[in-house]
Computed example of a mutant assay.
Amino acid sequence: MDQPDERVDIPGVTERLGKPVHAVYHLIQTGQVSSENIRAPGRDGLYVLKHMIRVQDIDANDQRQTMDEHVAAIRAAVVPLSPTQIYRIRRALESGWRSR
């Protein structure tokens, strides 16, 4: 179980959310997640600055949708094709446009 004030670094957040590193930095830059820069020892013993993010903030921001929900939202927002568009697409496909 997570401690009340547990903090993780960027690689920990990427594992937890399943998002790429640049997406986590985007969350920080846009203010969706607050981070604290901490001076910590690096791999070679030299100190580095790390973004440390509270686990509670990550969990509160994690609004992942399943793939099915995401596809359903896109399909609900799409405007149907007009009869003219359907005709032109059908004509292009029938005329051998695919074979080019």
Rank of each mutant, 00 (worst) to 15 (best):
Y87P: 01
V71R: 15
P80N: 14
S35W: 05
H51P: 06
T84P: 03
P80C: 15
D68G: 12
E94V: 12
R88L: 06
A40E: 02
E69H: 06
V21D: 06
M52A: 09
K50A: 03
I74R: 15
H51Y: 14
L46V: 01
A77K: 15
H70L: 10
G12D: 03
Q65V: 09
N61Y: 03
I10L: 12
N61Q: 05
P41Q: 13
K19H: 15
G96A: 02
Y47P: 00
R75Q: 14
E6R: 11
I53H: 07
R64T: 14
R90Q: 11
N61R: 02
Q63E: 13
M1I: 07
L49E: 12
R88V: 07
R7N: 03
R75P: 01
R16G: 03
V48D: 01
H22P: 07
I74L: 13
S35R: 05
Q63F: 09
M67S: 02
V78N: 12
V48I: 14
E15C: 12
D5V: 05
A40F: 01
Q63V: 05
I74Q: 12
E94K: 10
I38S: 07
L17D: 10
E36L: 05
D44K: 04
P4H: 10
L81G: 03
Y47D: 03
P41G: 09
D59L: 15
V8W: 02
Y87W: 12
R64I: 09
R100S: 14
P20A: 12
L27N: 07
L49D: 12
G18T: 08
R16N: 04
G96F: 01
L49V: 10
V55E: 08
I74D: 11
A60K: 14
T66D: 06
I58G: 06
P80A: 10
R39N: 06
L81F: 04
D57W: 04
D68S: 08
L46W: 00
L49A: 07
I89R: 13
M1W: 13
L81K: 10
A73I: 02
G42P: 01
Q63I: 13
L27H: 14
V48M: 01
R43E: 06
G96Q: 03
S82G: 11
R64M: 09
A77T: 11
D44C: 00
A40K: 00
Y87K: 14
I58H: 07
A60H: 06
T84K: 15
Y25C: 01
P41C: 02
V48H: 01
R43V: 00
D59C: 01
V79H: 15
A92T: 00
R16A: 07
P83I: 00
R43G: 10
K19W: 06
D5S: 03
D44P: 00
T14E: 11
P80W: 03
K50R: 14
T66S: 13
P20L: 04
S95I: 10
P20C: 11
G18A: 07
A40C: 01
I38E: 13
S82N: 13
I86M: 11
P80L: 09
Q63S: 13
L27P: 12
P83K: 12
R91I: 08
E69N: 02
G96R: 01
G31K: 00
H70C: 13
A92E: 04
G31S: 13
D2G: 05
S35E: 13
S35L: 12
Q85C: 02
D62S: 08
R88I: 05
R64F: 07
E36M: 10
R75A: 09
D44F: 00
E69Y: 12
A23V: 04
V24N: 08
H22R: 14
E36F: 09
